[in-house]
């Protein structure tokens, strides 16, 4: 169960580089426990902190007015690399609820939807236009629009991802509504392909 996502108004922090991988989002060494929380201090740690873990003043999230940004603008292939879901948990815990990029790693995009973070796809030119907006942007997921200043763009998103984000739905609960069909299918498949079912064939 994640926090429902409908509309979001915030300044957008520009981090417009291609291939921001999950190790940049949260370095492996920052994942100190086996749980899902306590990750926000590790967000972008390699960029955010200089020697001695003091803030690096050049990093976008350490600069006004982006410190409290809830929207991140990024480049192609955002979230590539390790499948670690901690990348999404760290973003959400920090308060970044929407990443706008020309493309996302498929694993990251799936994780984001489950973690209540909107992976919003726009062409690079439109992202550049949003980066030029001085004030806040508003992301309206039900309407599928991003607006701010003179900029107004619409975006596409799959119906499943949209419904899950808006409802903050738990995917397992939704799937268990299909439990009977899953059980029927499994029984038929077990008869046809018994070698799939280890220890019970």
């Amino acid at each position: 169960m994640s926090r429902p996502f409908t509309t979001l108004t915030s300044v957008a922090a520009p981090l417009i580089e291609d291939n921001i991988d999950t190790d940049i989002i949260i370095p492996s060494r920052e994942m100190k426990t086996t749980g899902k929380t306590g990750l926000k201090d590790g967000l972008f740690a390699g960029r955010r902190y200089a020697e001695g873990r003091v803030e690096n003043p050049d990093f976008v999230l350490n600069r006004a007015p982006f410190r409290d940004a809830a929207i991140l603008l990024a480049g192609d292939n955002f979230g590539c690399g390790s499948s670690r879901e901690h990348a999404v948990w760290a973003l959400a815990e920090y308060g970044l609820r929407c990443v706008i990029a020309p493309s996302f790693s498929p694993i990251f995009a799936g994780n984001a939807v489950r973690g209540g973070v909107l992976p919003l796809v726009l062409p690079a030119a439109e992202i550049a236009a949003l980066a030029a907006v001085a004030g806040p942007l508003t992301v309206d997921l039900p309407a599928q629009t991003v607006t701010g200043g003179d900029a107004a763009f619409s975006f596409a998103i799959g119906a499943e991802a949209k419904a899950m984000l808006i409802g903050g739905l738990d995917a397992i609960d939704l799937t268990l509504l299909f439990a009977d069909r899953i059980a029927d299918w499994t029984a038929r498949n077990r008869a046809a392909r018994p070698w799939v079912y280890l220890g019970s064939a």
């Binding site: 499948s83 879901e85 489950r114 995917a171 397992i172 268990l176 899953i182 499994t186």
Partner: peptide, 23 residues
């Protein structure tokens, strides 16, 4: 065979399935 996140792993463990958009 494909890589997933932890929440999807939970989903697969609990239901024996995943919800996936056909790529």
């Amino acid at each position: 065979a494909w890589g997933i996140g932890s929440s999807e792993a939970e989903h697969a463990l609990a239901t024996g399935t995943l919800r996936v958009m056909r790529p």
